[in-house]
Design a protein around this nucleic acid. Structure first.
Lengths: 332, 332
DNA sequence: TTGAAAGCGCTACCAC
DNA sequence: GTGGTAGCGCTTTCAA
């Protein structure tokens, strides 16, 4: 029952050839010509045994792999990011890389770098939140990673940074509310763990946009929970806010509903802007004004990875890649 | 600059010991006692070189890995599934498995099985949608996978099935609408690719619940798009439906909004039930009745994997693991 | 056109 | 306590 896993030696034996020949045939090595009958015998033997090459052995011998590693996101970051991810994976597959999401959550810094380095990936793509640090990046590179790419608001020494600064999202929202004459602007700060990496810079962006305008920016904590939203709505008037940036469209919906239940009109009482341009924003009444975020295309990123792998010395300059564009609807 | 990747031999050389000793020290092998000074020297050398063990070499030597492989979901399946996933990953990490999501999308059947088998995972967890087939499962097992677990509505020969039959979701929704006196029930079928695996069985479940009641069940296609929803709403009265199961809460929101804009009252004109019990359902007005889906706990599943890995001969019986409970609110 | 054999990095057995 | 060494499965020279 528990037959041993077939190896190329088993295939060779069954086909009556050497292991070298098996390797030549199965990899279509064109440096070597193998006669047609031999090829067929090898293929048949492989099929009969259900032979599957051993990736680890292969890359051990080759001295490198084509594995691109990224950590599994700890929290669900939303449909936008998911689309980006699957586009990226698709593009990388087309370039013959194996994309692998490493699924131990909560690793950071050098600890994370070590765990990933054990797999000897040829490239690592990591959100800045993992906070690899220069040492983590160095560790990965010393372990053979030819490309270490971080996405996030800041540059990490040694890594190629795709600057995706969430502050631009907050700036766009803030600028819009100010232009509509709002003078005292609330910024929703979700209380869910793992979201600070997004919410802090978004809030900072709102503050930046208000600098020198005399307008005030007030942070308002809000857990993603109906009761909390109702309590916030109950004391809303006492906050004296005339505008609010709701972190994203989901929190915006939560808050809008609570305000409306409390009899506070949007946008007349309080102007509201969400972010991420989800479908649900369009379905709200009033329709939600939002900040549309544009991620870089997965294909572009895949090509960048490929270029860096082929020639790691070529360090292209970091670019700001997070587009943030306000979509005005009815809520503010 | 491009120093070679340090190996245990390098560490041995620097510490002035043999490679065997390095291995003993770094793995804390308790069969062998190593003197304290030696241990220190080895650790220091490893640290100085930035040594990271080579997972592939190790598992090649060991003859097995502790990698649990699952495919990356092709479409975002929703926050519920994400929570389940990260709980599962966390639990498996605690049991010292390395969870890896294999990210080439769109592989199915034996093709997928082969690709995964190359990594020689000790366990594979795959949604039934990948449709491994008995041969795929056999291939994986022959390549050393001690546990092959599928989630999905049906059993695959040779694999351990976690039956997660989406029909129960449809049945719960259908039964509820019928109990409320609805006689002609629409079932929304999303047009997004990749969702059929969920939407078909959910629709089947509604039909099952209507069997023998004389009530009618009508499938209604709906792409996730505002315009399409508006067009559907415009011809809604002509469909003569008095109840609708909206596939899930998001489609329910889309449809509810379109119906309301068309002047069709919910639940008076049409009773509506969603599924997945998302926050947004609670925020709708009328509040959305929904089917709460209960996935198995990630921890339980992790323990099942561990048991199967330790003793693959023990085949526990397949169980129905998808709880579906109706949450009645206001929409139907 | 095919085969023999070295060696990738690691661990575990057996000697000393 | 420590070291020598075989061998996991594979590819790739070099020789025949």
């Amino acid at each position: 029952m528990t037959r041993a896993v077939p190896t190329s030696a088993d295939v060779a034996r069954l086909a009556g050839v050497s292991r070298a020949t098996v390797s030549y045939v199965l990899n279509n090595t064109n440096a070597v010509r193998i006669s047609e009958p031999t090829r067929r015998r090898v293929h048949e033997a492989a099929k009969e045994l259900g032979y599957v090459p051993h990736a680890a052995a292969r890359s051990l011998r080759a001295g490198h792999s084509r594995m691109v590693l990224m950590p599994t996101p700890a929290v669900s970051v939303g449909p936008l990011y998911n689309r980006f991810l699957s586009e990226l994976q698709w593009s990388l597959s087309r370039l013959d890389y194996t994309v692998v999401q490493y699924g131990r959550v909560g690793l950071t810094g050098e600890e994370a770098a070590r765990a990933w380095a054990e797999l000897r990936p040829v490239a690592v793509l990591a959100p800045g939140a993992h906070d690899l640090g220069p040492q983590g990046v160095a560790l990965l590179k010393r372990s053979g990673a030819r490309a270490v790419i971080t996405f996030g608001p800041y540059q990490v020494d040694g890594a190629h940074a795709l600057l995706m600064d969430q502050r631009s999202v907050g700036r766009a929202a803030g600028a819009h509310l100010l232009a509509r004459g709002r003078r005292r602007i609330g910024v929703i700060i979700p209380q869910e763990p793992g979201l600070e990496a997004f919410s802090r810079p978004r809030a900072d962006g709102v503050r930046e946009s208000a600098e020198g305008t005399g307008a005030q920016v007030v942070e308002v904590a809000l857990p993603y929970d109906e009761g909390a939203a109702a309590r916030l709505a109950a004391r809303w008037r006492s906050l004296g806010l005339d505008g609010v940036f709701a972190y994203n469209d989901e929190y915006a919906m939560l808050l809008m509903r609570a305000l409306q239940d409390e009899g506070i009109a949007v946008p007349d009482g309080t102007g509201m802007v969400g972010a991420d341009d989800l479908m649900l924003g369009r379905l709200l009444r009033p329709r939600l004004s939002t900040v549309r975020v544009e991620l870089p295309s997965g294909q572009e990123l895949a090509e960048l990875v490929d270029r860096m792998v082929s020639d790691p010395s070529a360090e292209p300059p970091a670019r700001q890649l997070l587009g943030a564009e306000l979509v005005e609807r009815e809520s503010g």
